[in-house]
Amino acid sequence: MTREQKSLWLHAAVVLVLGALYFVLPEYHAGNLARIMVLAVYAMGYNLLFGYTGLLSLGHAMFFAAGMYGFGLAVNHGGLPAGAAVLIGIAATLVVSVVVGFLALRTRDVAFMIVMLMFAQTGYLIILYFGEFTRGDEGFVVQQAQRGLFGFDLSAQGIRYWAALILFSACLLGIAKGVNSRFGKALVAVRENEERARMLGYDTHRLKFLAVVLSGVLSGAAGAAYGLLFGYIGSTFATVQYSIFPLLWVLLGGAGTTLGPFVGVLFMFYLIDLSSFLTDAYMFIAGIALLLLTMFAPKGIVGQIRASRVPWLP
């Protein structure tokens, strides 16, 4: 089997296993997995920019929030049906990421990171400032009746799971295909050595711009899906905390791997969930786990497996 075929089989297997798990897992864990899959889409969006293109952003919460608020405001104030509202959410993210990408890519390295952070902070404050519409920090609930798509009630446990799985699989397979394409390889070239990529005739600025936009739109889609599936829109999702999360997930799971983001979210989620059985100080355990992982598995979980055992891992 070629590398590509192996990768295709692997991703198909992951999707099938996740589908089968729904019938096996107790209700509580199935619910968690739905949430994890949506957040994994956010992490995959982040990974596209950070893991493949090598741009470290601390402002992705603004994309996630743009999708979420675009969706939520369109439903609650625009009275739109959920499907159209999701598209509005994605369109809102597209606009935000085009503008932000245009401005922020004038900078590089740490300055890029900080500019993204500043833009995200502005976004958060804007949500608070227009509290009349957004209900500020409190946020608002999207009522069960407004959360139907193609006649399905997305607030129902089972349908929610399948919707999350469909979104997750589409993104996973799309990215798996994309990273093997010319475009994907060009992005990696930018990450590895931007100067050389430029010499080879790539328009590196354009590539980076496309990466920001794609990454932003994926993050925004995750945000809109989160609002749709879980029914809550809130400014917490626009805070710095939610810009740091995808970075952690991706680094823990393995930057620049297709499955790393999912594994990272899964790991972090259950780390906190399980340790909260043991102690109130679950952040303490999370902190120690982060230290240990970065000391002993610096490439992230999937990255480490690839480096030591399975070199073909996508």
Binding site: G139, G234, S235
Partner: peptide
């Protein structure tokens, strides 16, 4: 805190 109420109440209802 109200924002936590808003975040959690839909799940409680479901």
């Amino acid at each position: 805190f109200s924002h936590v109420v808003f975040g959690a109440a839909p799940r409680a209802g479901e």
